[in-house]
Design a protein around this nucleic acid. Sequence first.
DNA 1: TCAATAGTGTCTGTGAGACACTATATC
DNA 2: GATATAGTGTCTCACAGACACTATTGA
Lengths: 235, 235
Amino acid sequence: MIRRGSEPWRGVLALPGGFVRQDEDLPDAARRELREETGLDVQPVHLEQLQTFGAPDRDPRARTVAVAYLAVLPTLPEPVAGTDATEADWRAVEDVLRTDLPFDHADILAAGLARARSKLEYTTLATAFVGTTFTIADLRHVYEVVWGRALDPGNFHRKVLTSEGFVSRVPGQRAGGRGRPAALFTPGSAVLLNPPILRDLEPSTPDRQRRAHRDDDPAAVCARAGNEVEVPDGA
Amino acid sequence: MIRRGSEPWRGVLALPGGFVRQDEDLPDAARRELREETGLDVQPVHLEQLQTFGAPDRDPRARTVAVAYLAVLPTLPEPVAGTDATEADWRAVEDVLRTDLPFDHADILAAGLARARSKLEYTTLATAFVGTTFTIADLRHVYEVVWGRALDPGNFHRKVLTSEGFVSRVPGQRAGGRGRPAALFTPGSAVLLNPPILRDLEPSTPDRQRRAHRDDDPAAVCARAGNEVEVPDGA
DNA sequence: TCAATAGTGTCTGTGAGACACTATATC
DNA sequence: GATATAGTGTCTCACAGACACTATTGA
């Protein structure tokens, strides 16, 4: 989140974003704005287009269209405020969700969270949250944090290992924790998860109806580096 | 598809689309452009944002950003050419895929097709393809045509009926076909499919690896009513 | 009667979840 | 030792697919 340095909503926490340049592709603009406003220069492991928000009244200054992007990073380097931002820092999603966000940034954030939760089910996105080598428990923690629910360690372990191309074993172990050292892995070649890892939203009611009403659209995402373009009058 | 009435690519088949107006929301613009260029005035049963295409060189005239939409209609009224279109007609997707499309319309079409195929798996989108009352076989034909593969009638029947809120029975039957009359249904209240109806892309190889490489991004959509906005210089 | 489609019954295999159990580390 | 975590074994249940079977129509 950045604290806005200019009107409107000067001094208010918002998602980083800005205007696309004339000869710039949309993902490039997202990366540039993120870098300019937060100093984060990492090549994100994962950057995907989220959704486009274009309600006529979304910006009081002019008609704009925002093309929202979702970035996923394995580590969170300390951001520094840049152009148009007096402050830049990481915030926990659950805190931001309780905040009043400017523009339609609440919708954008909700879409980003929903996308991330959904994509853990049927893609290998989880590996983008962890480093180049990781343990199965690291991966499980990603699922547990993003989904907000505990998973059975044993079943998760087996499911990841039997999911063709999800992870691939590398030599070595990671000790230093409390228990038995864990084997190390790197991301596999698969992008889509063969049998998807579906989350039961209803915590296993005995009758059917488990996934009947999910809160989000699976084809609809946590951080946003936005692109906005202005619509010329009369176009 | 419409035949373009103005440059560039005058006389070439393309997806309908045009520029968003100053005080118009994006879905409204999609509906308006579809109506203006093809005469289709139906309120589509289903209209969803597909993806935004903004490569700097996508339009030789100026920098534009296209917000693509996917519409699904149960019936296909005869379209008539309108503004900027000398011809408007329905084409089979497989034919259009073999055509050279202008701009980045091939990418847009591919995204639309992928979205529709994917959404049949985990949503009740199929009901948007059929009328207000339909038979299970109607629904099965949607899956078979969009997925391009035959499904077992018996298993499909059971799967639809046991999928909570997918369809709901209405009185009456539809005879007139060759065999036993079929019961009639209307769309149920569910939007998401409880146990999803997953397609096996590999036609059931004995070994694992069934859904390992899918051709499309499940979170990515067949017709497009596009929105384009121009980027002012120096924004 | 035959052919075609609607719909049901049944079997088998896969996989998810619950949970017990073994293995190996730190305290 | 106790405790915590990694990883495996096993059982049960749900469900997908294959396929046989019954039901009901038109030709």
